[in-house]
Design a protein around this nucleic acid. Sequence first.
DNA 1: CGGGGGTTTGAGTCCGTTCAAAATACGTGG
DNA 2: CCACGTATTTTGAACGGACTCAAACCCCCG
Lengths: 242, 242
Amino acid sequence: MNIPLSPAGINCFTCQMRDRTEWCSLKDEDLRHLNELKVCNTYDPGQIIFYQGNPCLGIYCVEAGTIAIRKLDERGNSALVRMATEGQTLGYRAFFAGGSYAANAEALTKTRVCFIDKEGVRALLERNPNVGLAFLKHISDDLEAAEDARLQASHLPVRARLAHLLLTLKDRFATVDDQGNLTIELPMARRDMADIVGTRPETIARTIRAIEDDGVATFNGRHVVVPDLDALLDELEAPDEL
Amino acid sequence: MNIPLSPAGINCFTCQMRDRTEWCSLKDEDLRHLNELKVCNTYDPGQIIFYQGNPCLGIYCVEAGTIAIRKLDERGNSALVRMATEGQTLGYRAFFAGGSYAANAEALTKTRVCFIDKEGVRALLERNPNVGLAFLKHISDDLEAAEDARLQASHLPVRARLAHLLLTLKDRFATVDDQGNLTIELPMARRDMADIVGTRPETIARTIRAIEDDGVATFNGRHVVVPDLDALLDELEAPDEL
DNA sequence: CGGGGGTTTGAGTCCGTTCAAAATACGTGG
DNA sequence: CCACGTATTTTGAACGGACTCAAACCCCCG
């Protein structure tokens, strides 16, 4: 297969993503240090970057591609906790809590990831307190998102939650086609959408059907066309207005 | 009413809870600083310590009592995000994310809380890097708990989730009665249990009924007797075994 | 061209909700 | 200490959304 990602030998100094990461406050010496510590790897779709239950050996920095954080329970139920794209960091929760990873990280697309080993992270945290603050902010945001998701899941019907997912994906995967329609290229299978919304694939299929019947969006495999964004926005309200 | 809480003028040096908080690594000079910064307050049941949507002015440290963190959505639905008791810190999520509080904090019992203002927290963070690490650990644990709760909520029936809640409350509110039975004194109303489990009060009532009929526990207002802990533990499994 | 996984559809069931009313607990003032 | 009004909890009946089980379908790939 050909290489959509630039060759290895990535350099933190020239990394386009750095400003969006926790490392954005690092300068000169510290940045040089990070650059030496990190180890780069590429993954194909479907490959697992780290496994739920494995001890945390360090943290990962996504340079390119899309990754799914998927959590499994004892009986094989799974939930897609979150998705990570360029500039995001993975595995920090386990690192700070000091235990094992609580979820799998699975590449959805071709992906390039930098790994920074535990000791290295610790060293950088010591050298630059801003790194710690950046992580605190990041985790705080995640926590709020997780709690919001819980509220949503228990009070909104599947249809509203699916609409919410589409709007989330829009920010990262949408383009505008020749007719001026909004189109979204879904980065995941129906199964994954079910996991993320907290339901079954059958229900996702039926809900998609219902949304199409109402003319809010048209689904064609992973290709979604949204003629009127407002109509999709309206789906977010719970079924009570007048 | 009489005074279950000792008089004001609390001192961080003698605070029994300090070892359990993020401040456990503070020594001498820093601790003195914290002691001067903090402002103590007492609250009666039902009083709000801070409001969802209000800007974060600092963080709170619970010295005695039980507090409910309750989140409301636009339509008046509420969910009990978590409960906080002695030694826990509140409001740190908003502090680090830099925005407003994402939930109400409401005293469930008589409560004494110390407030540390934003600037003060910042100063302590700078003086002692361990404080930041302690917060990172704390938030990481919260994040995992929140994500677990989400998985639970979408895959387990109400009955299992209620059992889970009872087991959580056991750690903090259970005693053993004269016959050797485990008894739990619930710190909240049915309404709150519904919120925490993510359902309606009616369903909680019915589920309690079902649990009683099966002899797993006996409810009498807020007084719960559990004759056999194992039976309660069994409720956690999903309804599939043989 | 023949699998094989993922997706869609269908029918039936169950769990939890809604709406409404009865019962109980609680706090207040007489 | 009791009576009363209010709020919470419990119960009932009917409805509905999502699940389960199972079969048909589709698309991709070898």
